[in-house]
Each structure stands twice: as structure tokens, then as C-alpha cells.
């Protein structure tokens, strides 16, 4: 894995290797730091230009923190992040600013991402002003163009966020990302708060925009069914670690890690309903382990039904099953 990253393929627009993010564990009256918990633990990834990489995992597995660290909202503890082949550590403040304008983020909570007292026009105009486009006519042109792209009528410009429905707000949020012509979009659960009939619209729209603007996308989701349509590569994240990483098709056809299999089984689907398949997900009851008190061996051993002595005591390494299929499990291939 690490070897592959070091070669630095030219088409990787964003990459990171052995990324570590720790939060302090504080105790007592004076919040004395008594230890560190690893929220993102040794993540290496590579986002290819014009492609979509999906990160799938349960809530609390560290996927949102990973996005925030990659974007520079939070500082990393260790590891390297490269944008267009240049390491983040070597960038000047100005270069960092450019990078951050090239990476735009879509959040799950659309009402929280728009300022309630700013009209849609103001919300869309602000990033343009901040990026130095002074001519109001030019700004207007860009805004109208983008608004059409996301399928909203110009009359929405004078409205306020609370006057729009969830689906319309999500479009505004996407439009606001697009006005500054980004290279990368980080989408943190962009559709999980939307209604069924709108989810498909937004997925389609993201795919259209990706083609048109040649965007690279890092998509965070918890549902493997949603990701199937849109992702080129999928990373399964558990407890801050990447437990499986493979091209999309491979994940659905040839999942190796027990956790990936659980996710596939847990995703509700119509076809399972037609087969009268129950919800047997083959998982020991419980939650993600406490990051302050991580299990000694494999992070998944507390819930894995295949776990044995070795899983409890030894940490599995990342192993390549095939050319571009990584899995972190002792039992890969056996189960």
C-alpha cells in the first residue's frame, strides 16, 4: 500500500499516506491530558482525477474527521497529505488558500450549511467575492449559469433558506460549491437527509456535474446501496482504519472482510424483500469499541463472528488480495 503511494501517480489529485489524527483524552478538574485516542489511524488513500472514491462506515468510525483533516479544517497529528502532488506541509499560506478553494464540501445538514439571514443570491455570491471576482455582472453570470446546472429557477435567488425544501436547499449547497470551479468535492452524506424521490435526483445530478466539470469526488456514506451507483472505488472504514479498499465492482462481488459482508447484508433492499430474506446480519451485538480503550487485536474482533484467539491478540496487517484489492483481516479468503 505505502509503496504504491510513494510512486505518486500523476493522476492523483489528492492523496494521503499513513494519516493519523489523535484527540487528547482529558480527565479531572483541570482537564489534564492523560492519553491520546486515535480517531483516524493510518489511513492512506488516493483520489484520482475525475473519479469518485467512496468511504463507507458506521457513524463514529472517523469518516467525517478524515474529511475535515484532508480539507485542513483540523490539523493532522502525523502523516502526509498531497494536493496535486505537492505536500501540504511544504505549502505557503497562499497556496493553502488556493487549495482550499479548489476543494469544496457538501454537508449532510443543509439548513445548517446556509446562513439563515442571507438570501440564496448572497450565499452564492459570497464565495465569489472572497475569491476576488469584483465585477458584479460577471458574478451574476456565473451564479445564473450554476443555478441552471443544478436545476433551480432564477426566482430562487431572492429567497431565504427556510423558504426552500430540503431537496432545493441541497441544490443550493451544491451550486455554492460549484461557483468557485472546484477540482474536488467532498460530500459528507449528501443524500441521507433527503426524501427517496429526491435522492435519485441528487445522485444523478452529482454524476452529471462530475462529468461536466471533470470533478473528483470523495463521498462519505453509510449505505452501500447508495454508493454502488456512483463510486469507482470504495473504502470500508471501521474504527478509524481502512479495513477494505477495492474497486466498486470488486466490493460487491468479492467482499473479503467480515465487516464489509455485514454492511452488504445490513443494507435494506427491495430484492432482498422479494426473496423474503430476513435481516440476519451475522454480527455480535454491540457498538464500535471505545477509542480511549481500543481492543488489543483486530479492531473488529469484538463484533466479528469469525474472531478467534489470534484476532483478539494480534493486529492484522493490510494485505493485498489481488492487484488493487486491499483487506485488513487474518481470515480474508477463508470466510
Amino acid at each position: 500500500m505505502a509503496v504504491e503511494i510513494n510512486e505518486k501517480k500523476e493522476d492523483a489529485v489528492l492523496s494521503c499516506s499513513d494519516l493519523l489524527k489523535q484527540y487528547p483524552i482529558k480527565k479531572g478538574l483541570f482537564h489534564k491530558v492523560v492519553g491520546q485516542k486515535n480517531i483516524v489511524d493510518g489511513v492512506s488513500l488516493e483520489l484520482e482525477r475525475g473519479k469518485t472514491l467512496a468511504i463507507v462506515g458506521e457513524s463514529g468510525c472517523g469518516k467525517t474527521v478524515l474529511l475535515r483533516v484532508l480539507l485542513g479544517i483540523e490539523n493532522k497529528t502525523d502523516g502526509t497529505i498531497c494536493f496535486n502532488g505537492k505536500s501540504l506541509d511544504k505549502m505557503s499560506a497562499q497556496e493553502k488558500h488556493v487549495m482550499q478553494s479548489k476543494i469544496q464540501m457538501i454537508f449532510q445538514d443543509t439548513l445548517g450549511s446556509l446562513h439563515p439571514r442571507m438570501s440564496i443570491r448572497e450565499s452564492l455570491e459570497e464565495p465569489l467575492i472572497l475569491n476576488g471576482i469584483q465585477d458584479p455582472k460577471e458574478r451574476e453570470k456565473i451564479i445564473l449559469n450554476v443555478l441552471e446546472q443544478v436545476g433551480l429557477a432564477p426566482m430562487f435567488l431572492e429567497r431565504y433558506p427556510h423558504q426552500l425544501s430540503g431537496g432545493q436547499r441541497q441544490r443550493v449547497v451544491i451550486a455554492r460549491c460549484l461557483v468557485v470551479t472546484p477540482e474536488i468535492i467532498f460530500a459528507d452524506e449528501p443524500i441521507s437527509a433527503l426524501d427517496v424521490s429526491l435522492q435519485a435526483q441528487v445522485i444523478n445530478m452529482l454524476m452529471d456535474l462530475q462529468e461536466e466539470y471533470h470533478l473528483s469526488m470523495l463521498l462519505v456514506a453509510h449505505d452501500l446501496a447508495v454508493v454502488r451507483q456512483i463510486a469507482d472505488k470504495i473504502m470500508i472504514m471501521y474504527f478509524g482504519k481502512i479495513v477494505e479498499y477495492a474497486p466498486s465492482k470488486e466490493i460487491y462481488k468479492n467482499a473479503q472482510h467480515p465487516y464489509t459482508k455485514v454492511l452488504l447484508k445490513a443494507a435494506p433492499s427491495i430484492s432482498k424483500g422479494l426473496e423474503d430474506a430476513g435481516f440476519d446480519i451475522a454480527l455480535k451485538p454491540g457498538d464500535l469499541p471505545d477509542p480511549a480503550n481500543p481492543p488489543k487485536g483486530c479492531p473488529f474482533c469484538t463484533r466479528c463472528i469469525y474472531a478467534d484467539e489470534r484476532c483478539m491478540n494480534e493486529k492484522p496487517e493490510q494485505t493485498m488480495v489481488s492487484e488493487n484489492h486491499m483487506v485488513m483481516c487474518f481470515k480474508a479468503g477463508e470466510v
Binding site: 424521490s197 435519485a200 446501496a225
Partner: peptide
């Protein structure tokens, strides 16, 4: 039904 994402391709 047509707009629901499926696990199958």
C-alpha cells in the same frame, strides 16, 4: 421503485 439505489448493478 425505479429511483431506489440497488445493491445489484
Amino acid at each position: 421503485i425505479r429511483s431506489v439505489p440497488l445493491l445489484e448493478a
